[in-house]
């Protein structure tokens, strides 16, 4: 039951993370499903918790003005087009 409660709590936390993001195209013949991709953070175990922590930390730093609101992401493999996004 503890495991169940913590999973639910983590799910609630994660589901608030992905507001206000801008658009770009994912490269795959298969639609991975946005919700299913987000769920993979939760399913990633401790590595997922660390990633969620980084997402929140970035959001907090943006909020208090310590991090730029816009940043660029490029993918070394070329699988992702470079797009800006903010307030993760």
């Amino acid at each position: 039951m503890l495991k169940l409660t913590s999973s639910l709590a983590f799910l609630l936390v994660i589901s608030t993370l992905f507001f206000g993001m801008t658009t770009s195209q994912a490269h795959a013949y298969l639609d991975p499903g946005t919700g299913s991709m987000i769920l993979q953070v939760i399913l990633g175990g401790f590595a997922g918790i660390a990633l969620a922590g980084r997402l929140y930390w970035h959001r907090f730093r943006t909020f208090i003005g310590m991090a730029p609101a816009e940043s660029h992401v490029g993918d070394e493999t070329g699988h992702e087009s470079s797009k800006s996004r903010s307030d993760l």
Partner: peptide, 8 residues
């Protein structure tokens, strides 16, 4: 939303 890019 570009969730994939955000995750990366």
């Amino acid at each position: 939303k570009d969730v994939r890019g955000s995750l990366a």
